[in-house]
Design a binder for these strands. Structure first.
Length: 577
RNA sequence: GUACCCGUAGCUCAGCUGGAUAGAGCGUUGGCUUGCGGAGCCAAAGGUCGUAGGUUCGAAUCCUAUCGGGUACACCA
């Protein structure tokens, strides 16, 4: 309907003023109407007339053009045109679904990107939560989404870890691994990485040994060596890391269909970069292979180091080529910390030189760091940083203290919502107490709001007076339908209309969040929706009221939209809490 | 030094493709109350939108400068 109105308004503008304009209807404050446009203000200058006069002329035509769906068109302020839709149009709008704007598109979403042998820190949790939400948005718009993950199982950090592991095991002694209890494995590896990093910086002998081990790990991949003592240690501990990741993703509800290890991308990366030495895209410099980003206002980076080993840059090139081969995608979305922004621009610029279609279809989104309220920036290199489990534990502890219980779904909902309600980009200050609070703008508040609405519907069902299809027990985002029967022809009383108006914004909000890849729009909307409902509910009885049928429909629609929105954010909406 | 990100109420944040009195939550103060889950609702106080210019009929939003915070800048990932 919104789209239809926009097109009709644009046509009227064309007819009256001969101007091509992109009309975007916005949702004004309720007192002004249901939709608003500022075309008259924009047009005023172009046609050399007073904005209110322009609005007058448009309004007159629009009354015919928009037909009987619009009950009233008013001009307000400097020249805004406000549309009031009639109740049956509003009732129809309640059934509108988000646009399938990405139907038949193939999208690859890469995010999370933890490195084997290292610990999962708060940033991984943040990226995973954001990535899931963005992937969900793209998927609901009709795209086939491939959620993939990427991480460094080769590289200097592996050399550092191996060095420390050998020290712990007393040499290349894989049998010693059996001594490490299963529950301690990931911690043990993380500690080895920190120890190796320190040695690398402080001890020249160790540094040389680490550099050598790094090379040997590459060789081990090249030779497909699974038998030598070092190989046994490497493959076993790498698997420990993957097991640890799997447990973590299962806990937070993330699912990846593929994990690209760098060991599988570096050959293609090396090959691709070397191929483009001849055409000058990459160049040799001081024994290394670089891309001269300065030419493009970026900075220069090393892709292959002077020992002939690929750096992260070449591996990223390889990954990019692999994704193209594997998925033939229409669009690729990569989500990382903002520390990688400039680096990624250099890599993408270099790829653009030989594969422009790839660079053009790739979007790199970045987010800031997670900090605890009053906390410190984390650094995985030094070992004093906020781990993913620290965040979850903090939420769990706060939940116990505040709500006398730490239901896992509530804790996850709290953390995810706290991460997703802010526009991504800047750093995020995470306050565990606030996030688990059942009051205010929090995940648990919304989960509770949903449970409460379900409770009303349950009670009505028990009395045999339920609206049709009020349960979304299957928990899918599709279960938002309510038949346009029984009282939904649109005789809303004022309080009902306010609620209906807010509910009807859902598809527009989802469309905008999808178009901009900004899940926080959903979070903001859901909170406003819940507030609107609570205001309605405070003063309007549902069950045993003369208007029960209509109101139950609204409650059902509200609960379904709330649930769908939460699911898009990766947050569960239980029927009871 | 160069580039990018951020600076909105005491705190945490929306609002940013320029538009109607700058909005929430927390906190503070006051009110509603045996309720279909009050984990709610109503109201008040609280803002030179970092600062200074500029563009515009109109700027939190665009441009420039500047201050403050963060990040990245050759063989780490």
């Amino acid at each position: 309907m919104k789209q239809e109105f926009e097109n009709k308004i644009a046509a009227v503008v064309q007819e009256l003023f001969g101007q091509m304009v992109q009309v975007e209807l916005t949702r004004p404050e309720e007192q002004f109407g249901d939709y608003a446009t500022n075309v008259a203000l924009q047009l005023a200058k172009q046609v050399g007339q007073n904005p209110r006069d322009v609005a007058e002329q448009l309004t007159e035509k629009l009354r015919e053009a928009l037909g009987d769906q619009v009950s009233e068109i008013t001009i307000a302020g400097p020249g805004f045109i406000n549309l009031h839709i009639n109740n049956s149009a509003l009732a129809a709008a309640l059934k509108a679904e988000p646009t399938q704007s990405l139907a038949n598109k193939i999208v690859v979403a890469e995010y999370s990107d933890p490195n084997p042998f290292k610990v999962l820190h708060a940033g991984h949790l943040y990226t995973s939560v954001i990535g899931d939400a963005i992937a969900n948005l793209v998927e609901q718009a009709g795209a086939t989404v491939h959620r993939v993950n990427y991480g460094g199982d080769v590289g200097l950090h592996v050399g550092k870890t191996m060095w420390a592991l050998l020290a712990e095991l007393g040499g290349e002694n894989p049998d010693g691994l059996a001594q490490i209890p299963e529950n301690d494995r990931s911690e043990w590896l993380a500690a080895a990485y920190v120890k190796g990093t320190q040695a690398y910086e402080e001890d020249e002998t160790a540094k040389a040994a680490i550099i050598d081990l790094n090379k040997r790990v590459y060789t081990l991949h090249a030779d497909n060596d699974h038998d030598s003592p070092l190989a046994q240690i490497y493959w076993t501990t790498r698997q420990w890391s993957y097991d640890y990741f799997d447990r973590f993703y299962a806990r937070i509800g993330s699912h990846f269909e593929k994990y690209y290890p760098e060991s599988e991308t570096f050959q293609l990366g090396l090959q691709t970069v070397r191929e483009h030495l001849a055409d000058g895209i990459y160049q040799e410099s001081d024994g290394a292979v670089i891309f001269d980003g300065d030419k493009y206002g970026l900075h220069t980076r090393v892709f292959i180091n002077s020992q002939g080993l690929p750096t992260y840059e070449a591996k990223e090139v390889g990954l990019s080529m692999l994704k193209v081969q594997d998925y033939h995608f229409d669009r690729s979305i990569i989500i990382t910390s903002n520390e990688q922004e400039q680096y990624m621009r250099v890599v993408l610029k270099s790829i653009e030189q030989f594969a422009p279609e790839f660079a053009n279809s790739t979007t790199h989104l970045t987010h800031g760091n997670v900090k605890l309220q009053g906390g410190v920036k984390m650094s995985s290199r030094l070992g004093n940083f906020l781990r993913a489990v620290d965040v979850l534990d903090a939420a769990s502890t706060a939940a116990k203290a505040l709500n006398d219980g730490d239901n896992e779904q509530t804790v996850l909902g709290a953390v995810k919502y706290a991460f997703l309600k802010n526009r991504m980009g800047g750093d995020l200050i995470y306050d565990p107490q606030e996030s688990v609070s059942l009051e205010g703008n929090s995940g648990p508040y919304l989960q509770y709001a949903h449970a409460r609405a379900r409770s009303i519907l349950r009670k009505a069902a028990e009395q045999g007076t339920a609206a049709e299809n009020t349960s979304a027990a299957n928990g899918t985002a599709e279960s938002v339908w309510v038949p346009a029967s029984a009282g939904m022809t649109g005789e809303f009383d004022p309080a009902e209309r306010s609620l209906a108006r807010k509910i009807s914004e859902y598809p527009e909000v989802v469309d905008k969040a999808t178009a901009d890849l900004m899940p926080h729009y959903i979070a903001t909307y859901l909170y406003e929706l819940a507030q609107t409902f609570n205001r309605f509910y405070e003063h309007n009885r549902v069950i045993d009221d003369a208007r029960q049928a209509m109101r139950l429909h609204l409650v059902a629609l509200y609960a379904n939209r709330l649930q769908s929105g939460l699911l898009l954010l990766g947050i569960t909406a239980p029927d009871k809490m």
